[in-house]
């Protein structure tokens, strides 16, 4: 029984990280109708930014995190401006290939600056583990869960009740009509990239704290998993990304604990295939009706 709950906690922890990253994928897809495969690499850049600010420059963690968030938001906006904006009217395949190109570009930049060796991620969250019965919850896990929950609530409020949130929903439904109502789609897309990248940075903190080492390809696997989570939950849907991320994390940890560590990824992707067979739009995905 202890293993069951312990696994649930670690599943929630991993799932929170996936969910935070998946939000970036799903928001960008919902609004710009593109898959930003460079999104995973923003996590890696975010993690390196903490290594530079904390380990090398010795800045206090809070400042380091704020710098990292600002840097990643700026990075996301710049990527969109330089790589994707010129392709606004191009085919989605061209944009997809470009995104993959940006992903390799970021990985190679990181390799050039930091080398191929993995670097230790500084310990910036020092919190004692708590014990509930026989289940032990690490301090970092607790922070991850709480911060993710708060972010999800804030993001939901932001999307539903602010002017920019409404603009984002309008643009995601009908870009042209939104333009004609005076909304700048370019600005809305920039804001979306900024938010998505900032969330990726926060995810990188938890990822770094859980896995403790960072290398230039660190972003790929969580990136792919988070993309899977976004599709699993229904790409374009924000609650879907949250649910998909958490469920994927839990499934992965249970597979590791009860079935097989080496097979866990296969099981995760198997579940994805099953869900998509039964519900092609994902768990909370909207039905796409073609207008004739």
């Amino acid at each position: 029984m202890s293993l069951f709950f312990q696994t649930l906690i670690s599943g929630l922890n991993l799932g929170s990280i996936y969910a935070l990253i998946a939000l970036g994928y799903t928001m960008v897809y919902g609004i710009a109708k593109m898959l930003n495969f460079a999104h995973g690499d923003v996590i890696m850049i975010g993690a390196y930014s903490v290594i530079v600010t904390v380990s090398s420059l010795g800045l206090p963690p809070v400042i380091a995190i704020l710098i990292g968030i600002a840097f990643c938001a700026l990075l996301g906006v710049s990527i969109e401006f330089l790589a994707y904006k010129p392709l606004r009217k191009a085919s989605s395949l061209a944009v997809l290939i470009t995104a993959i190109g940006v992903s390799y570009f970021l990985q190679n930049i990181a390799q050039l600056i930091f080398g191929t060796q993995q670097l230790a991620f500084p310990k910036i969250i020092n919190l004692d583990a708590i014990k509930i019965g026989s289940v032990q919850i690490d301090g970092i896990t607790l922070v991850t869960l709480c911060v993710t929950a708060v972010i999800m609530v804030l993001l939901t409020l932001f999307i539903n009740f602010t002017k920019i949130g409404k603009a984002m929903r309008a643009v995601s439904e009908d870009k042209e009509a939104a333009e004609l109502m005076g909304i700048s789609t370019n600005r809305t897309i920039s804001v979306t990239f900024a938010i998505g990248s900032a969330l990726a940075m926060i995810a990188s903190l938890f990822y770094g704290a859980t896995y403790t080492y960072i290398k230039p390809t660190t972003g790929s696997m969580p990136g792919i998993k988070a993309f899977t989570a976004a599709v699993f939950g229904g790409i374009g849907s924000i609650p879907g990304a949250m649910l998909g991320g958490i469920m994927l994390g839990i499934i992965e940890q249970y597979s590791k604990a009860y079935i097989s560590t080496t097979m866990s990824d296969a099981i995760v992707f198997g579940v994805l295939i099953l869900v998509l067979l039964v519900k092609p739009t994902g768990l909370l995905g909207k039905k796409i009706s073609e207008k004739v």
Binding site: K163, K166, A167, R169, A170, E173, D174, E176, A177, A178, M181, G182, I183, K286, K291
Partner: peptide, 21 residues
């Protein structure tokens, strides 16, 4: 010509999107 409302937004929010600028 063919209605293009933001159909998932509430009626009020559609107008508020219009008020946006």
């Amino acid at each position: 010509q063919n209605i293009r409302l933001f159909s998932n937004l509430s009626v009020l929010d559609n107008v508020k999107v219009g008020l946006h600028n």
